[in-house]
Write a protein that binds this DNA or RNA. Structure first.
Lengths: 214, 214, 214, 214
DNA sequence: TATGAATGAGTGTTCATTCAT
DNA sequence: CATGAATGAACACTCATTCAT
C-alpha cells in the first residue's frame, strides 16, 4: 500500500483556485480527494456531500453537476483509493529492486511496509472502509478482488524470487503464503493503536518464519 | 456462530431476574440480536432503530423503553458481538484440550478457526464494523483493546504449550507471533469471498511456518 | 403572598410512606405538591408527569389513577397555588394587626411583603406561570380573577383603615390605588434578580407616596 | 404595536444587503414575526417550528435554512420582541417632547402607556413569556436585564425633568421610583382582562401620587 | 457552470396515555 | 390500587436532491 510520489491526497486544496477557470477534471479530482479524506477520517457513515463541497469551496448544489448522485462520487472515490493502494503495492517496490544490497527482496518489502504503515494511516483507514463496503456494493467488491489479485501476483513474484535467491524457504506453497501475508497486512490495518515498534517486531517475526533454516 | 444458552459474555443480564423479569431481558436480548444482524448486514451506517423495532415486532418508540438511546443499544450490541467473538477465540478451545488426540493444541486452534470462519460470516462482518468504529468511538475502542489483550494472552499460552510439546518451533518471540496471528485472522475477516479451501490452505501454511523443522 | 403556617410545599416528601396504606387524598396532595414544585422551577413548559410520579415515588402510569389526564392535575395544582397565595394575601396580615405597634397597617403589609418576596421565590414563580397560562386556560383565568378580587378587597380595606388612622393620604381613589399596588407587586414578581435591598427601597418609596404630607 | 420600517432594533440584518439578499432577510423577518405571534398566542410552550413554517408558507425543513436550530430562532425572536418593546418604552417618547403642550413629560409618558397597553396585547404577552423564560435561559435573562437598565435610565430622565419642571414632587429617590414604575407597568402586563378604563385610572392615580402637593 | 432556496423522506427521541396483569 | 410494557402522534433536525435563475 501507499504514497505515490507526487501527492498522497492528504493535503486537500481548500484555498480558492487561481482566477482562471478550473477545468472539469481538476474539480472532479478535488472533489474526489476531499471525499476520500472525509471517508478516511469519518468513514462512509460520516460522508456528507455538504462537507465535501465546503472543503473544495463550492456550493452544495454544484457538486451534483460533477457527480449526479452521491453514489457516483463514491464510485470514483473507491477507484481513487484503490488506485493509490495499487500503485503502492505493486508498482513501487520492484523499482527499488535495482540496487545491490545485502537485504533480500522480501526484507525490502517488509521494510517498506513498516515505514509506510504508520505514515499512511488515512489510506489504510479508507481501504478498510472499502473492504467493508465491498460486502454491500458489488462494484466495489469487484474492485477489491481485482486489486487483491494484482497484490497477490506481486507477492508471489517476490516470494518466488526470494526462493531462488535462497532468502525464502523453499517448502512454501506460493499462493497460500502470499494470501496469508495479504491477510496479515490487512489485519494490521485494523489494529487501531499499533505502535511502529509492534509492527516492526511482527514483520521481523514473519521474516524469521519465512527464512530458510541454516 | 456462538452458542449462548448460558452466558453470552455481554453485560445484558446482571440483575437477578425474578420469574417475571425474564420477559424484559428476553426482549432486550432480542433487540440486541436484531441490531447485531442489521449491523452485520448493513453496517453501523445502515442501522435504523425503526427497522430493529420492526424486526422484533414492536413499536418504534418501545425500543426506547429498553435502550434510552441508540448509542446505548450500540454499546450493548458491541459487547454482545465481542462476547460472541471472545468466547469463540479464547474460552472454548481449552476445554477441548482434555481428550487425547494426535493433533497439537495449535492445530486444533486452526482447525476450529477454519471450521468457524465460513460459518460465522455475520459475526465476522460485525466484528469488522466494530474494528472500524473503534477508530471513532472511544468506548468501542477500549472494548476491542481489552478483547485483543485476552486473545493475545490465549494465543501466547497456546504457542508456549506448543513449544513445550515440541509442536511449535522454539525460536519464536511469543508476543510478536501472537500478534501476527491475530492480525492474520483479522485480515481473513476482511476477505469477502474467501473460500473454505483458501482459508484451509492459508492456515496450513501458517502451521507449517510455526512447526519446528526436523 | 405567602407561606401558610404548616407547610409551604417546598419540601416534598420523597421518602416512601410508612407501611400503612396511603389514602387517596394524601397521595393526590403529594402529586399536586410535586407538580407545583416542578412548575415553579421549570414552568408549565417543563412539567413532565413522569418526573412528578418519580418524585412522589410511584409509577408513571399510577398517576393516571389519581388524575385521569395531565390537564386535570394542572387544574388542581392551579387551585393549590392560588390557595397558597390567597391565604398569604388576605388571611394572614389582619391577624398581625392586633398588637399595638407604632407601624401603620400598610407599613406592616409592605414589611411583610419585602420579608417574603425573596423567601417565596418558588411560589411567585408558580404564580407567574399561572398568570400567563390564564391567557389560554379559561378555568385558570377565572381562578386568577377571583383571587385578584379578594386581594383587591383586602388592600382596599388596608388603605381605608390607613386613611382613618391618618397614615394614608385621603385624596386617593381606593380601588385604583389597590389595583396599582397589585400590579406593582406582580411586577416585582417578574423581576428576576431583584435584590432584597432593591425591593425594600421600592416599597419604601411606595409608602412615601401614599403617606400624607405634613 | 411598534413601527419598524426602519429598524426594529434586533440584530436581524447586520450584513449590507445587496438587492438580491433582500428576499433572504425578508424571509427571516417573516419567520421571526410568525414565531413571535405564535409565542404571544400560545407561549414558548406552544411554539412549533412546523406551525411557524406553515404560517410563512414554506416547508418545515426550509426553516432550518434560515435558522439552524429552534433556539437560534428563539434568540432572534427574543431580540425582536425586546426591540419592539424597547423602542416603545424609551426611544419614541422623547421625540414627542418637542411640541408645546400643557401636559408634563410624565403625563405624556403615562398617556402613551394607556394608549398602547390595550393595543399591544400581543407584544405584552410576548414580553411576559420572555420574563418567565429569562429565569431559565441565561441569554434571554441578559437581554431583559439590559433592556430594563435602558428603561430605567429613561424613566429616571423623565422623572428628573419633571422635578425641574415642577410637575413631579422633589422628595423622591429617582432610581427606586423608576424601578417601582417599571414593576408597576410589568404588573399591568400580567393583568389579562384589564379594561382601558382601569388602566387609565391606575395611571392617573400614579400621576397623582408623584405630583407635588400645592 | 454555479448558486441560493427549497423540498420530502426519514431519523432518533419524547411523552401522555393505555392496557393486561 | 399499582405496575411494566407498550403505543401513536408529535417533535426538531438531517441530508441528498431539485429547481429557478
Amino acid at each position: 500500500m501507499m504514497t505515490q510520489p507526487i501527492d498522497d491526497g492528504s493535503q486537500l486544496s481548500t484555498v480558492p483556485r487561481s482566477s482562471h477557470t478550473v477545468d472539469n477534471d481538476e474539480r472532479r479530482l478535488a472533489l474526489v480527494r476531499a471525499a476520500y479524506a472525509e471517508i478516511a477520517e469519518k468513514g462512509f457513515e460520516g460522508l456528507r456531500l455538504r462537507r465535501v463541497a465546503a472543503v473544495v469551496g463550492i456550493n452544495q448544489a454544484t457538486i451534483h453537476y460533477y457527480f449526479p448522485t452521491k453514489e457516483a462520487l463514491i464510485k470514483d472515490v473507491a477507484e481513487y483509493i484503490v488506485g493509490l493502494n495499487l500503485s503502492a503495492n505493486t508498482t513501487l517496490y520492484p523499482q527499488a529492486q535495482d540496487g545491490e544490497t545485502s537485504l533480500s527482496l522480501f526484507q525490502r518489502y517488509t521494510a517498506e511496509l513498516q515505514r509506510r504503515i504508520p505514515e499512511d494511516a488515512l489510506l489504510f483507514r479508507a481501504m478498510c472502509e472499502l473492504f467493508l463496503r465491498a460486502g454491500r456494493d458489488e462494484r466495489i467488491h469487484r474492485l477489491i478482488v481485482k486489486t487483491d489479485a494484482l497484490w497477490e501476483a506481486y507477492l508471489i513474484n517476490i516470494l518466488d524470487t526470494g526462493m531462488q535467491e535462497g532468502t525464502i524457504r523453499k517448502d512454501l506453497e506460493l499462493q497460500s503464503t502470499a494470501r496469508m501475508i495479504i491477510a496479515f497486512v490487512k489485519g494490521i490495518t485494523l489494529q487501531l493503536d499499533a505502535q511502529p515498534d509492534d509492527i516492526t517486531r511482527c514483520l521481523e517475526q514473519l521474516e524469521l518464519l519465512l527464512r530458510p533454516r541454516p
